[in-house]
Simulated scan of single mutants.
Amino acid sequence: MRSCGVISLTTTARVALAGAVFAACLAAPVSSAAARPHLREATEINNGLFAVAIAREIKDYCPTINARYFRAFNFLSSLKRKARDMGYSDAEIEAYVDNDEEKARLRARGEAYLAAKGVSYDDPQSFCALGREEIQKSSQIGVLLRAK
């Protein structure tokens, strides 16, 4: 009797085949997560989050500059899509964004940037000057802001 496309194997052949499949599975990457770097190493994502954080700080401290909320929402959504396209799950993305150590790292980077640009928390006008400069340059920070 002929089986439709099913190969009849002896027990020894089945064990050998199972061993080969097992060995091939061990040699292959366990998952795509193993090949992905941590999200903190995703430069495009981190630079985008940095731009949003700086724009928000400028908006919060400068009385004459406002956020472009719709544009900021769309930009954050695009960052999330890029992270998903890189293979990160929504849970991984949320865990990264909510991580206190990552927030502290981003804050330290932001404070260093602001200090290098001559911005002082004691002088709201210094935030305004930086905001106007970023708007004028049409930088990623600047496109998230608008003068009142």
Rank of each mutant, 00 (worst) to 15 (best):
E44I: 10
P124T: 03
Y88D: 00
A20C: 08
S138F: 09
S8P: 04
Y88S: 03
A35C: 11
F70L: 15
A18T: 10
P29A: 04
G110L: 02
A55Q: 03
A35D: 08
V6D: 12
S78R: 09
E57C: 06
F22I: 11
D98N: 15
A67W: 07
G118I: 02
Y69A: 15
A42W: 06
P37T: 02
V52Y: 03
S31I: 01
V6Y: 10
V97N: 06
A27G: 05
M86C: 03
H38C: 03
A13E: 14
K59G: 11
A115C: 01
C4A: 15
L130R: 01
N74D: 13
P37Q: 01
L39H: 01
L144Q: 07
G118P: 05
D98E: 14
N66T: 15
Y61V: 05
A53L: 14
S32R: 12
F70C: 11
G48F: 02
R84Y: 04
E41H: 06
A42P: 03
G87P: 02
E133D: 13
L114A: 03
S138L: 12
S32C: 08
A91L: 10
S8H: 12
Y88N: 02
E92P: 03
L17H: 08
C62I: 04
A104Q: 06
I65L: 14
L9C: 07
A91V: 09
R2C: 08
T43I: 12
R71P: 07
I135G: 01
N74Y: 08
V97Y: 07
G5I: 06
D85E: 15
L79N: 01
R14K: 13
E44H: 07
N99K: 05
E101A: 14
K117N: 09
G87F: 00
R14Q: 11
S126M: 06
S77C: 05
L114P: 00
V143P: 07
A35M: 11
A28D: 06
L26T: 04
T11A: 12
A35Q: 10
S8T: 14
V21R: 06
R71E: 14
K148H: 11
R109Y: 10
A147W: 12
R132V: 11
S139H: 07
N47V: 09
T11P: 07
S8L: 14
R2S: 11
Y88G: 00
V30D: 12
A116Q: 07
A108H: 09
T11M: 13
R36L: 02
L79I: 01
I93W: 03
R132K: 13
G131S: 02
N74I: 07
N46T: 13
R40W: 06
C62Q: 02
Y88I: 03
V30C: 09
A18H: 10
A115H: 05
D100P: 10
L130S: 00
V97D: 04
G118L: 04
A55S: 05
A27K: 08
S3T: 15
R132C: 05
G131L: 02
L17Y: 07
L106Y: 05
C62R: 00
F22K: 13
A16C: 01
G142V: 04
R107D: 11
A28L: 10
L49I: 04
L145T: 00
K82C: 08
E41K: 06
S77W: 08
A112Q: 07
K137S: 09
A72V: 15
G142L: 02
S77P: 08
L144N: 05
